[in-house]
Computed example of a mutant assay.
Amino acid sequence: MSAYDAGAIVVLEWPESVRKRPGMYIGSVDERGLHHMVCETVESAANEVLSGRATRVEVALTADGGVRVAHDGVHPYDLAQVLTTLPAGWPAGHEDRRRIAWGGTLPAVVNALSARLVAEERRDGVPARQEYARGERIVPSAGEDLADGTAITFHPDPEIFETVAFDYPTLVEHLRELALLNRELDITLTDERTTPPRTERLHHPAGPVDFTTRLGGDPADTLTLRTTDERMHGTLELALSWTGGGGVHCYANSRPTDGGAHLAGFHDGLAAALGRPDPPAGLTAVVSVKLDRLDLEGATRRTLGNAPVRACVAEAVRRAVTDRLVARPRPASG
C-alpha cells in the first residue's frame, strides 16, 4: 500500500471548491438543485425585508434564461466578500428567529455555479456594479440605472446543471409558501419569457390563516395563535381549522420539516386539550416556529431537534385549544 500523508491532500481553491462538488451545497444538479439556486437568492433578499432593511422583493425570470432578484434595501455586508467566500457558520450571539433558515448563507455558491452573475447596488445615489464568470471576478460592463437598492442577476452554468430551464409554477408555490409564513413579505414574480409577461404578487397579511384556507380549512372557524416563549428562544405561530382535511404542516424558520419537537408538541397539546390521543379527522393545521438557534437533525436536516420546543409548543397549544373549546364547544368525535 502506498503511504497516505499530508502530501496526498488536495486543497481546492475558490471557486473549484464549489464547482467540483455542487451537490454538497445544493443537493443535486437537476431541476431541484436549479430551483434551490433561486430560492437561496430570494431568501437572502427576503431576509433583508424581515430584518427591516427593505420592504419588497422583485423576482424576474429573464427572457435570456437568467434570474434577477432585487430588493429596495442595501446589503449590510461587502458584496464582493459575500459572493466569493463560503460561510464558516453563524457569528456568536446571532439571532435567527427573524430569518429564513438558512437563506442568504450561500450567495457564493450561487455565484460559483453560475456562468455569469451580476451584482448591482446603489447607496445614496452612488451606483456600484460587479460581474463574475463562474465565480471569478471580471471587468464590469455598463449596466442599468438601478434605483437605490440591491439586485443580483445570474445565469446557471449549463456545464454544471442538467437543465437550466426554470419552472414558473414551482417557483410560484415556493415563494407563496414563504409569503404565507412571513406576513411582512411582499414578493413579485414575473416571467419575462412569455408574451405578454405574466406576474404574480405573493403577499399574505393574514399569514398562516391564508395557508390553512388554501389547504381547505374554514377561515371563519380557524384558531390562531402567535406567542413568544424565551424558554425555547423563539416564537410559535399556529393556524388550526377543524375542517379541510389538509393535515398538519410544520415549519422551522420558514423551512418545511418532516416532524420533530414542534410537531410532537402540537400533538401533545392537542391531546391534552381534547382528552384523546388521536387528532380529529379532517384537521388542517400549520405549525410554524422561528428560533434563534435552529437544531435540524437527520440525513436530510428536516427534523427539528430543539428539545425545549416540545414542552413550550404543547403548553401553548393546550391552552389555546382549551380556551377555544370553552368558548365554542365542538364534538369530541370525528
Rank of each mutant, 00 (worst) to 15 (best):
R122H: 09
T150V: 14
P308Q: 01
V29S: 06
E43K: 05
T199Y: 04
T84M: 15
A299W: 00
E58V: 15
T227C: 15
L178Y: 01
G143D: 13
A128M: 07
L240M: 00
L61P: 03
G104K: 15
E159N: 11
P169W: 01
S141R: 09
G260A: 10
V126Y: 04
L185C: 14
G143Y: 07
A311H: 10
A46C: 08
T243Q: 02
E162R: 14
L79D: 04
E230D: 08
D78E: 05
M232F: 08
M232P: 11
A307V: 14
A88G: 05
V49Q: 13
A92D: 15
A115I: 08
G247D: 07
V42I: 01
L263I: 10
L181Q: 00
V42Q: 14
G275N: 11
P15Y: 07
G265C: 00
A80T: 04
D292Q: 03
T153F: 00
G334N: 02
V110L: 02
T150H: 06
P219W: 08
V164W: 00
L171Q: 10
R129W: 15
I9C: 08
R198A: 07
G149V: 00
L294H: 07
R226L: 01
D145P: 00
R330H: 06
V110D: 03
T322I: 01
A299F: 01
C312Q: 13
D268T: 02
N47W: 08
S28P: 04
D30N: 12
A63N: 08
A8F: 13
D157K: 10
R97N: 06
L189R: 03
T195R: 14
G260Y: 09
L50V: 11
G269K: 01
A314E: 06
V309R: 00
L240K: 01
L175F: 15
R226G: 08
M24G: 05
L12R: 13
E162N: 06
G305C: 07
I9R: 13
A273C: 05
G149E: 03
A151Q: 09
A8W: 13
L189E: 05
A206Q: 05
T153Q: 01
A332L: 11
Y132C: 04
M37I: 09
V29I: 09
A299R: 15
H94P: 01
P205Y: 08
V126S: 14
D78Y: 10
D64V: 00
A147I: 02
W242C: 02
R276P: 03
S241H: 11
L79W: 02
I160S: 06
T41M: 15
G269A: 11
D148R: 10
